[in-house]
């Protein structure tokens, strides 16, 4: 028996919007720790890892570890039927091949339940090693989204370089080149407006902008984004989900042939 009650149901709606274009089908894993997902895109170039900790739910009952295969496009269709202020409860019985999403309006005058068919997904779970990164950049998520969108109108790839001067996003295409440099800036009114650069050593890596733009669909989940870079590792683009956990996108770099 599984029953997870999320008062801020809009979080789950936003999570689905953030990942449904990157991943078609995925197993949601439910354990005492929380509600989680790890999935790769169909090209096996990007990986998304989601964690919504059990403590973040108003009610969290998960009698035994359960993996539920869902088509994310179908799940998104169902969650779009929930209001932004609705409380969402996820329910499943042991051995059932369906999951139920229950939506309650804030004043309890409307209760809806949507039952979705589960699917068997033979997915590979990858071990993500703990790593020390050469550079970690925290910046406003809206700024990062703007840069990725702007650069993708010029080129297909972005070179992200971190030096003591700041973080530079560069692209080139048929019509020309573009460079955006963000310097560390901690003298701001609100902490989420700051750009903070922790650099152990300079690093420069190349990535496909198509994936970066896909990751920025998580922007509504968090005011800030944290980008971790090391020369021999995929980039990590992390959006923290307040009080609950995170959504992390890993993207393998492009390397010189």
């Amino acid at each position: 028996m599984l029953e997870l009650r999320l008062v801020q149901g809009s979080l789950l709606k936003k999570v689905l919007e953030a990942i449904k274009d990157l991943v078609n089908d995925a197993n949601f894993d439910c354990s005492a720790t929380g509600f989680s997902l790890q999935a790769m895109d169909s090209s096996h170039v990007a990986l998304v890892a989601l964690l919504l900790r059990s403590e973040g739910f108003e009610h969290y009952r998960c009698d035994r570890n359960l993996s539920m295969g869902m088509n994310l496009n179908n799940m998104s269709k169902m969650l779009k039927c929930a209001g932004n202020d609705d409380i969402i409860t996820i329910k499943a019985d042991d051995g059932s091949d369906t999951v139920t999403f229950m939506f309650e309006s804030p004043n309890q005058d409307k209760i809806a339940d949507f039952e979705m068919k589960l699917m068997d997904i033979d997915s590979e779970h990858l071990g993500i090693p703990e790593a020390e990164y050469q550079a970690i950049v925290r910046m406003p998520s809206s700024e990062f989204a703007r840069i990725c969108k702007d650069l993708s109108s010029i080129g297909d790839t972005v070179v992200i370089s971190v030096t003591k001067e700041g973080v530079k996003f560069s692209t080139r295409g048929d019509i020309g080149t573009a460079n955006v440099v963000c310097r560390q800036n901690t003298t701001v009114d609100k902490p989420e407006e700051a750009t903070v650069i922790e650099m152990q050593e300079p690093v420069s890596l190349t990535f496909a902008l198509r994936y970066m733009n896909s990751f920025t669909k998580a922007t509504p989940l968090s005011g800030t984004v944290t980008i971790s870079l090391s020369s021999d590792l995929p980039i990590v683009v992390e959006y923290k989900i307040a009080e609950m956990g995170y959504i992390r996108f890993y993207l393998a770099p492009k390397i010189e042939d």
Binding site: H44, A46, L126, T157, L233, P234, A252, E256, D257
Partner: peptide, 14 residues
């Protein structure tokens, strides 16, 4: 020309 690496190159199966 750039070669797109895959995630498998970095992360192993559990």
């Amino acid at each position: 020309a750039c070669l797109q690496r895959r995630i498998f190159y970095y992360f192993s199966k559990d």
